[in-house]
Design a protein around this nucleic acid. Structure first.
Lengths: 330, 330
DNA sequence: CTGTTAGCGCCTTCAC
DNA sequence: GTGAAGGCGCTAACAG
């Protein structure tokens, strides 16, 4: 690998001159610049990113940490983050937190190889997050609440969303409503459930624990939970899946058992992933402003980076998207 | 930020001693190690990744460059890469090539911030890729062929796959078959089309250009192309979409026009994305070994990294997955 | 406009 | 087992 030293030598100038020339400084004459550029090209010179970052103590990149790079849910979020980041001249790298504290994600988080971080990964512990929080290192969390003055918090209103979804079901005449859980350590899930049970209560309905089953936000989990629900031999009138992926798995399970949606049972999801409108029947669900959440997060990071003050917490609201998986019961 | 210097000072030892202690060298006594560790904890010390990498000239991370982080197609590929990378103690970062030569991806590629790169991004030009190719820098490309001794090439057999898909349609009695294109610069698409037209020819069918429409591998593109197809006022008996995403968009377009799949027209896709089995009707398609492709790619990178010789090119085969979008024509 | 110089934070011989 | 010193490749004062 050719270094800047080699380039300087070949061009017959000092190292600093070469550096200036390569970095478009104005302090260099056209002719020297040409010389340097030619030398660089000849040697196939590429600057060493580390050395440069080390010196400048900034990286111009922000990291997005997701528990799973491959989930469909994240698509729009990533897009939101990416759009804003690139228009600001920043780079975005996405890393997975699979592997927990050993993961790449955590390494980036701890070794500050980036200028700012957005976290949406339930398997990164609060402690770990807090360890990295400090002044001058913008940290935005999307899936939890953290009491720390250096952590900013963007959340969608899960309680409201859970409430609205449940209320929709009730308005359509359903009284016996099941709830399929997300993973036990998911803050989002807790909140949605809170909205769910509140809506039940406000409408004079009682929550029955036999109708709260465990899923894990995956299609598989929704499928399994639904099979169990069916096995209980007594079906509710409607089921509220804590996210769309599970609802999709659930619908498949129902279909396999000859149970028709929405004729036999109504189904509602949460998230409004792209897929929701393509399945049969199209899924009624609570839309999360995923793109907006991503865009807002980076925005906040940039504000923090430029020393501006921002609020500690932001809340985005959800919206009911009616499709065909919930029927009006007479 | 505390540096190793601070730690050493607090612990009352030399910098090198602190470094040894922190890096689990055996050359340090238990007691000094404890002292250093305590000091590190007290100062909340975290090593600076850049400095460390700069010195060691290796990063223990590999990059996966994708044209779009958010596409559903990539899920399994990422998983394959990730599994192998993490079990080998390597980190994986995924970066998007959106933004072309200005993108993060290219930066990582050129500035060698990683030990190896896997590319699956049609918007990264061949030239750019070749510029980065050199001895000792493992580079695996998944979506094109490149003549360079330092580039390794993993591909799925697109020609065969295109051939098999078309032949399946023909065997089911279809003669008038349309082909919906991927983006013009996609090598994969070219190959699939080649298989398509070969199968046509081998079966005594003639290719008609009115039945080759332009899509771009997106759902939207498939939808638009299909609308155009419908507007032509004369429908083929079957359509081969160059990938599943487009097929899904296409099916929606057909449905909107009251055309039934597979009763009125048969549809086949390519890829076998997860979604394929959930849509209505479940999509018949050519399965690509995505996980395997990812896993193999990293494998090759590790072999290269350890100085082993590997072949220049690997080919994985596809497999027909029959579902319900193709009907037998009598 | 160009060259000299001093580090960025860390690792690693080499003497002691 | 420990410490002093040099340098990875680059940038940015500071002089000239």
């Amino acid at each position: 690998m050719a270094t800047i030293k080699d380039v300087a030598k070949l061009a017959g100038v000092a190292i600093s001159t070469a550096s200036y020339a390569l970095n478009n400084s104005t302090k260099v004459s056209q002719s020297t610049r040409k010389k340097v550029e030619n030398a660089a090209k000849e040697l196939n010179y590429q600057k060493n990113g580390f050395a440069s970052d080390l010196k400048r103590t900034k990286t111009n990149t922000i990291a997005l940490i997701l528990s799973d790079l491959s989930g469909p849910y994240y698509s729009e979020l990533i897009k939101g983050v990416q759009d804003v980041a690139t228009t600001n001249g920043y780079d975005l790298i996405a890393c997975s937190s699979i592997g927990g504290s050993q993961s790449t994600a955590v390494k980036f988080l701890k070794e500050k190889r980036v200028d700012g971080v957005i976290i949406l990964a339930h398997n990164i512990s609060d402690e770990l997050t807090l360890e990295s929080a400090r002044e001058g290192f913008p940290l935005v969390v999307l899936d939890r609440k953290l009491k720390n003055e250096f952590v900013v918090h963007v959340e969608v209103d899960n309680v409201d969303g859970g409430y609205a979804a449940t209320e929709h079901l009730i308005k359509k005449g359903h009284k016996q409503i099941a709830y399929i859980n997300g993973p036990y350590n998911s803050h989002d899930n807790e909140l949605r459930f809170e909205g769910f049970s509140r809506a039940l209560k406000d409408n004079g309905l009682t929550y029955q624990s036999k109708w709260r089953l465990s899923g894990d936000f995956t299609r598989e989990g929704g499928y399994r939970a639904t099979k169990m629900l069916i096995a209980q031999n007594e079906l509710p009138e409607a089921v509220f899946y804590a996210n769309d992926e599970m609802a999709i798995g659930g619908i498949q399970a129902f279909r396999e058992n000859g149970i028709k949606i929405p004729e036999d049972i109504s189904v509602i999801g949460f998230d409004d992933i792209q897929l929701a409108e393509y399945i049969t029947p199209p899924l009624t669900t609570m839309k999360q402003p995923k793109y907006e959440a991503g865009a807002l997060s980076v925005h906040l990071i940039f504000q923090l980076l430029s020393g501006e003050k921002v609020n500690h917490s932001y809340k985005l609201s959800t919206e009911l998207v009616e499709r065909d998986s919930v029927k009006l019961k007479e």
